[in-house]
Nucleic acid binder design. Structure first.
Lengths: 136, 136
DNA sequence: AACTTCAGTGTAATCATTACATATATGATA
DNA sequence: TATCATATATGTAATGATTACACTGAAGTT
């Protein structure tokens, strides 16, 4: 997605497309990683020397309100952020620390007696050792 | 579970059963809630006037190492702790803020191509509105 | 009783996040 | 174009959970 397309996308969600906002979105979109604010800052500061962490926090807050981005925590004490694309769970490998996106199909997570609960969000975290690390 | 049984239980897991340790375990065991360190502190200080938060952190750390307790985060920035009993997911109601324990049966969370991944831990969080709040 | 070890406490440090005040840019209007 | 109003970006300081560390105190052993 190029900058123009991102600008349109943001406008459509009621967010004025400033340069930092576009770059932060692009960062999340292109990498498809699960960065912390610190990682975003350390990478984007090369591109935007005046960038501040506050701007990143503000921008991510906007994105989250517009349901463009969601945040989650993986037991560490730093939030991680990612573009919302489709339902998937996260697998974190304890050896290499990579975080895998794992698609899941419609799973019935609630037993019968919870049928009347309204579910707005599902987050699934798996922890273990990934195939690559197990082979070594 | 009375204090003696807890003391034995802790010993069996290599933890010397001091009074604060027993009371912290008992707290988690009896309430079956998902307290933060702050909640534990505010409640137990009535029982143990000299209790310090550091002791709670240390004790919970011990319990976690002995796999008696696990911690998780629900997007806020405070860890929550609970006795490990059986696999269940957490449902947080956005209205009343209660956290429900929801049992789940063996769900296949990994598609075929991840068959070789070793899963050590599963955490499932659901967010939404509970039946009681919906009825109001 | 003296010694050793482990448990508990208090204070201070760390670090992610938020609050706030200021500066800068943008866009509309005259 | 100049001016004004508003939104955006920035830097600094405050907050608050967690951790580090050093000291105190209890329990058990010889």
């Amino acid at each position: 997605m190029d900058s123009l397309a991102i600008a349109d996308h943001l406008k459509n969600h009621g967010i004025k497309p400033s340069y930092p906002r576009i770059q932060i979105y692009k960062y999340l979109y292109d990498r498809r990683s699960h960065p912390t604010v610190d990682q975003i800052y350390n990478d984007l500061i090369k591109l935007i020397p005046t960038l501040s962490k506050t701007t990143i926090y503000n921008t991510l807050g906007l994105f989250i309100n517009a349901t463009l981005v969601k945040s989650f925590m993986l037991d560490e004490n730093e939030k991680r952020y990612e573009i919302i694309i489709h339902d998937h769970s996260h697998f974190k490998c304890e050896k290499c620390n990579s975080i895998y996106d794992i698609p899941y199909d419609d799973i019935d997570l609630l037993p019968q007696q919870y049928n009347n609960f309204q579910i707005d969000e599902v987050q699934i975290f798996l922890r273990g050792i990934c195939e690559d690390c197990l082979e070594q």
